[in-house]
Design a protein around this nucleic acid. Structure first.
Length: 492
RNA sequence: CGGGGUGUGGCGCAGUUGGUAGCGCAUCUGGUUUGGGACCAGAGGGUCGCAUGUUCGAGUCAUGUCACCCCGACCA
């Protein structure tokens, strides 16, 4: 593997590509804006998937699967929704290829045109609500709480690895409820699930809040978000949960007989997180040496690198590693004994660092003689020599400490880059320097748009659980009265 | 769609006024190494994005074309 260049301060996208590609995490494929996620990177996604799936199920959600293709007519029923997605849809128009009659290669068979075009799902509200219509007759059928893990396609004009790819993996939850209150409570519940996952597993501090109307999901009455801060101070929307009101119920004619005998439209929510979370994970924690994975999500938590000269030394060291490995596995820790004998130790050290493995153990004849072992922690880049006897016992506590320490570091970083701002001049100066600015906003889309046009900054959210600031003030831009501060930032 | 840029071994690049296609990394072989990304020696691998033209001769010049990248508008 070649030297990894990581100019975090100079060229973020270059850093991103180098780390990601060189770290064997993923690479851009030939398909426009799509990603190949290599096994090591995919293992991280699988772990995230597994943990979140468990959290969803604890709230009563069940997994299901709906079709990839959406007939065009389904898709166009909810006006606002289609307006939001129409510009970025992949459309299937034919179902057959044929040999090119005029030369080499294949061409689309003109006789195989579909009567109705199919849209490759950019999100599944429309097809799911078409199905829900048949599932929902009575208040007794509600709530319906479905989630699906799948891929979706959005034909973005500009793509970015992990953050905005043409095709991405995600989960989308779609629920149907008898009352507005119940649906709103569900939307809030799920955004809290996301926040908990981000904080406790990804070691990623996030702000939970409401989106301003400008930033809302197409077709939603309210959009809740978790917003994270990356190491350059930019904001990343890491997950969203929408209260959809009765928009889809009405558009897809999903009515049910309520307990009082009247016919009512169902209330809806949808919520999702995607492989963008992996982008967040990478960008929030990595340093110039490569990835730093929180132990809770690292596919390999402890890598063991043997150091030896002779075959005797090699087998003695590997035998000891086997012993330690067994003890760690028994504690539920995932390990990797790096017994590749064509590579030198220094190379292996560097490789596990690039891949973000939280703890590395190095053991050689010297250590064996002294009864010690070298323990390296990735987040601090420190190593210490500890007694061989106690090493397996100390690892769980160490992993725990690393998890907390990574989170603490991210929290401190964010705290140092959030500030109140009450002057438009100051706002213009500071917003480009990588900060969340807590400012007063008059609540109008026009003001938000004007601020965006002037500075590229948007309202990331109206916070509900941190940085909440309910107080009277004047809009940073228009000077009109405001009742609370909101978070402005430049976003990815 | 607007504004820039780039197409040359797997990857990253050089290639002068047009004259036998090169370098680094990677790969393979042999040897010495192995406590922070080893070294030496040797080997393999490219019809220079595509098409047409100018020329005795084109990676190089001209015209056309295709693809990709970056900056915007759009977005999770």
């Amino acid at each position: 593997m070649s030297k990894v260049i990581t100019p975090r301060s100079e060229d973020y996208s270059k850093w991103y590509n180098d780390i990601v590609v060189e770290a064997d995490l993923a690479e851009q494929s030939a398909v426009r804006g799509c990603m190949v996620i290599k096994p090591y990177g995919y293992a991280i996604w699988e772990k995230m998937q597994h943990i979140m799936d468990g959290m969803f199920k604890e709230t009563g959600v069940q997994n299901a699967y709906f079709p990839l293709f959406i007939p065009k007519s389904f898709f166009s029923r909810e006006a606002e929704h289609v307006a939001g997605f129409a510009k970025e849809c992949a459309v299937v128009t034919h179902h057959r290829l044929m040999n090119n009659p005029d030369g080499p290669g294949v061409v689309v068979d003109p006789d195989a045109r579909l009567e109705e075009e199919l849209i490759v799902r950019p999100t599944s509200e429309t097809i799911i609500w078409s199905v829900y219509k048949n599932w929902i007759k009575s208040w007794r059928d509600l709530p319906i709480l479905c989630n699906q893990w799948c891929n979706v396609v959005r034909w973005e004009m500009r793509t970015r690895p992990f953050l905005r790819t043409s095709e991405f993996l995600w989960q989308e939850g779609h629920t149907a409820h008898a009352t507005s209150e119940e649906a709103q409570a569900r939307a809030e519940q799920m955004v809290q699930v996301y926040a908990k996952f981000a904080r406790e597993w990804m070691a990623l501090p996030v702000v939970v809040g409401h989106k301003s109307p400008n930033e809302r999901f197409a077709g939603a009455l309210d959009t809740l978000t978790i917003e994270a801060m990356m190491q350059d101070g930019k904001a990343l929307q890491a997950g969203t949960s929408h209260f959809l009101g009765q928009n889809f119920g009405k558009s897809f004619d999903v009515q049910f007989a309520s307990a009082d005998g009247s016919l009512q439209y169902a209330w809806a929510t949808s919520w999702g997180v995607s492989t963008r979370l992996m982008g967040a994970l990478i960008m929030a924690h990595s340093d110039d040496e490569g990835l730093i994975l929180p132990p809770a999500l690292a596919p390999i938590q402890v890598a063991m690198v043997p150091v030896y000269k002779t075959d005797e030394e090699r087998s003695a060291v590997l035998a000891k590693f086997e012993e330690i490995g067994k003890a760690l596995t028994a504690k539920g820790i995932s390990i990797k004994i790096d017994d590749r004998d064509t590579l030198r130790p220094g190379f292996k050290f560097a490789e596990w660092e690039v891949k973000g493995v939280p703890v590395r153990l190095a053991l050689g004849a010297r250590d064996l003689a002294a009864g010690s072992i070298e323990v390296f922690r990735r987040d601090l880049l420190t190593k210490e020599s500890v007694s061989l006897d106690g090493v397996a016992e100390m690892i769980p506590g160490l992993l725990d400490d690393i998890q907390k320490s990574i989170y603490r570091k991210a929290v401190d970083f964010r705290a140092a880059h959030v500030e109140k701002c009450d002057s438009w001049e100051e706002f213009k100066e500071k917003i480009g320097t990588g900060k969340f600015l807590l400012c007063h906003w008059d609540g109008t889309p026009e003001t938000e748009q004007a601020i965006k046009d002037a500075t590229k900054a948007t309202i990331r959210c109206i916070p509900v659980d941190s940085f909440v600031c309910e107080e009277e003030g004047k809009d940073i831009f228009s000077g009109k009265p405001s009742h609370r501060r909101v978070i402005f930032a430049i976003a990815y």
